[in-house]
Design a protein around this nucleic acid. Structure first.
Lengths: 336, 336
DNA sequence: TTGTATGCGTTATCAA
DNA sequence: TTGATAACGCATACAA
């Protein structure tokens, strides 16, 4: 079996009896080629199995078509669904996604961004973690677009997409109030990311405004187990809450299983629960969780459309988009 | 803001007062550079913010460092966890993952593979769907390694990784038998992928060997909803099974919620259930599902280690790896 | 160890 | 519309 290398435009040109530029033009949308030569090139290419080398194209055009997705915990329901939508939209816009997993150590977001630079990615979308200022600058200086999703950085030339976490938190308090709950709880992880903390702060503030006590519990990594642990802690304490806002659906699932199985409570009769993210499991029969939906489609849409419009990002203007997380009513909050 | 382009090795060389090859060698592991020049280059590179252009490097070296992950339904628990492990291992071996989402239409696996060729990916890992023979040949002819996970193709030069689905199915029948179940059921989707069908066939065969009747139900897309629908169908029929093997954990979750909520059955007292995949939700309190674990780590490990050893794949030898799916005992099957 | 020269596959510029 | 030629940024064979 001949360990042959890829065929080049050169060879296609030879076979078709044209110059190599003709071949190049044939594969460049909107270039000037006659129908005739175009056809001959296409046929020769087909027979030889020619495919444009995007490495070389990227080199001369100075655009690789690559967009980096920088993410940790990518097996998490919310993250993976965002990833799916993002890759899909990216491909639809003629780009391709390079995903970099930052699960390992800490400075890994910086390393991920360096990888993005090495491959001359046109943009990097950061779903988790926070890169160093200096490397952000480096990206920007070289014309790489940057998108931060649910992060907190203030910076020129960056697109930041956040949610109205505080509004959602207020809505949750509202719902609990109408359900006649008077002892609130907030179940959070110890991660302390901006969005998680914004939900907590908004919840606490709105509760205070209504004169409601709220028991805040922060523990462990954001996930199912953390919800169970918090359930144990909260329900063992002197003052059991009758309504709990969980910072995340995963936490909420753990919390629900905990209060049901370890304390025999029934939901929403004994305790009302609201989550955040609207992961698929939230709609499962065992949970039917009332929650707030991450506008995943909108996030992806805004992101790639920003790539399109801001070819002129020489202006350096950054944008902050605050998207709305809509409440999805299911069965874990008593009707008002 | 100066829309400056990336700095090149040329500029670094100038600043450091060396030749451009010295710079190249500094960033080539195992090249011959003196400590002195190496240091000067490194410093100049640091100050200028230089990063090797992997597009150009890939061009000359004929290896891009890119591996394509071709996948559909990537937001599914099993898929996303495989994706996570794969990206992680790939990065650890100095490569980078390009993920291509094939959710859309059908021929999209072929298009994905073309994309892989265009970017001169060193390998493509196919997690779902089945590419055309001709394009497989094209990849192979150009020295691109191919890995098929849970697919069925017989072909030279390909690494195929399958599971011992039939053995697992036998084990499930065994477990049901010891739990004194005598009316079996198999809950499958209508997808008809090789691994799903292998589990079904293995289950049916082993049941027959023991003289046990088995009710097979196939319906819809592989997922939670399909499990619920099948529960409705199976439990409404004349002969209710007292043990059901679900082709997938997702199906099992739907099935469990269905039989509990719509038919008031209790698990495992009234009916025993076994799933497949061992997704995270299988361990959640609401399910505690007895299931078979996908050896995700092993799959990823074997894959990237195959990349390493088979630099000499001129031999054209393909491999078939059959990995073991171990049974994870939880609480949905009565003890024997 | 270092520098020079050449090639990798493509696109862009310029004449024809 | 077409072809020749010069980049693009890097690696490497070869000579020094």
């Amino acid at each position: 079996m001949s360990r042959k290398v890829y065929v080049s435009a050169q060879e296609v040109a030879a076979k078709a009896g044209v110059s190599r530029s003709a071949v190049s033009r044939t594969f460049t949308p909107g270039a000037s080629v006659s129908k005739e030569t175009r056809l001959r090139v296409l046929q020769a290419a087909e027979e030889l199995g020619y495919h444009v080398n995007h490495l070389a194209r990227g080199l001369t055009r100075r655009e690789s078509g690559i967009v980096c997705l920088i993410v940790s915990d990518l097996a998490t329901p919310y993250r993976s669904s965002l990833l799916r939508t993002l890759t899909d939209r990216l491909q639809n816009s003629g780009r391709v996604a390079m995903v970099i997993n930052t699960d390992r150590s800490d400075g890994s977001v910086d390393r991920a961004l360096q990888q993005a630079i090495r491959y001359r990615a046109e943009a990097s979308i950061i779903l988790s973690g926070m890169p160093d200022r200096s490397i952000i600058d480096l990206c920007l200086r070289n014309g790489q677009r940057l998108v931060l999703i649910n992060r907190d950085e203030e910076q020129e030339g960056i697109l930041r997409i956040n949610l109205d976490d505080a509004v959602a938190a207020q809505t949750a308090v509202h719902a609990f109030w109408r359900a006649k709950c008077r002892h609130l709880g907030f179940a959070n992880s110890a991660a302390g990311t901006p969005s998680l903390m914004a939900r907590e702060a908004g919840f606490v503030a709105e509760a205070a405004a209504r004169g409601l006590p709220v028991l805040v519990e922060r523990q462990g990594a954001t996930g199912y187990e953390c919800g169970r642990a918090i359930a144990r802690r909260m329900m063992t304490g002197r003052q059991r809450p009758d309504a709990v806002f969980c910072a995340t659906d995963l936490i909420a699932c753990g919390f629900m299983d905990g209060v049901r199985q370890e304390f025999g409570l029934s939901i929403p009769a004994d305790i009302c629960i609201v989550g955040f993210d609207d992961i698929e499991q939230a709609s499962w029969g065992s949970y039917e969780l009332t929650t707030f939906a991450q506008p995943v489609d909108q996030i992806a849409l805004e992101t790639v459309s920003w790539f399109g419009t801001h070819d002129n990002l020489a202006s350096g203007e950054g944008s902050l988009l605050t998207l709305h997380a809509e409440m999805i009513w299911r069965k874990t909050v008593r009707a008002g």
